[in-house]
């Protein structure tokens, strides 16, 4: 391994890294928003919107991000809807993630025991109080493990952004390999940057997950 090569490439990788995490986290923020709204719509069985959300969730959970991105980035402009590669990456990740987050939050809401609802009602709580002080806090805790898994999954999915010419880590690595054949160094740096991006999330995620489990079940 040639460390001079690594030093030379470092600024390029850092730039790509920043872009990847920027788009990644914007996409994740979007996915959380979409997920929460979708889960509420499903939980409260809001007519019409429920059906729309169901179709959306199934469509995006059962297709690869790469295909979704190609459709949005190359397909939609033919209908006159053009968006930048960066926006496309964030929106694509947001839509994919939204469908996963929706499922996670919905099952969190569904996992709160019926007897919790009953005992809250027996105390004279109104539907609204029941939801905000009893159901929601428990549902959030219950969905933590799934949400953590989604976060990691979505951050990993950012690796397909290069397919729509976003200058992300993968793009940079592939480009440099193609230009200078420093394969070992390029791949090494690629791995290192993905470790920097994901290891903290994975470790923190495990801790938060354990805490959440303990909070709900005490073990």
């Amino acid at each position: 391994m040639d460390f001079n090569v690594i030093k030379d490439y470092l600024p390029l990788y850092i730039k790509a890294f920043m872009l990847t995490i920027k788009i990644g986290w914007i996409g994740i923020a979007l996915s959380l928003g979409i997920g929460v709204i979708s889960a509420f719509i499903l939980h409260f069985k809001i007519p019409f919107f429920s059906a729309v959300v169901k179709v959306y969730v199934e469509l995006f959970r059962n297709t690869p991000l790469l295909v979704q991105l190609f459709f949005v980035y190359f397909g939609l402009p033919k209908l006159g809807i053009s968006i930048s590669a960066e926006a496309c990456g964030a929106i694509g990740l947001g839509l994919l993630g939204g469908s996963y987050m929706a499922e996670s939050f919905r099952s969190g809401l569904g996992a709160v025991k019926l007897s919790q609802t009953e005992s809250a009602l027996a105390l004279g709580m109104k539907k609204r109080q029941l939801f905000t002080s009893v159901i929601l806090p428990q549902a959030i805790t219950l969905s933590v493990p799934a949400v953590v898994a989604n976060l990691i999954f979505l951050l990993k999915e950012t690796s397909v952004f290069s397919a729509i010419s976003l200058m992300d880590l993968m793009f940079t690595a592939k480009d440099l390999i193609g230009l200078y054949y420093n394969t070992t160094e390029c791949l090494f740096m690629l791995v290192i940057f993905y470790v920097i991006m994901l290891l903290p999330v994975s470790v923190l995620g495990s801790i938060v997950e354990k805490k959440a489990r303990f909070k709900m079940f005490g073990d």
Binding site: K113, S115, Q116, E118, S119, A120, L121, A122, L123, G124, M125, K126, S133, V134, P137, Q138, T141, K215, M216, F217
Partner: peptide
């Protein structure tokens, strides 16, 4: 819910709120 305030009920499975302390469980309602 107004009527229910006047009828207390205790269940077989206790059903305390797991995310609240004992004191909070009691003072919440």
């Amino acid at each position: 819910s107004k009527t229910r305030e006047k009828i207390g009920m205790v269940f077989q499975s206790y059903d305390l709120f797991p995310h609240k302390t004992i004191l909070q469980n009691i003072t919440l309602a």
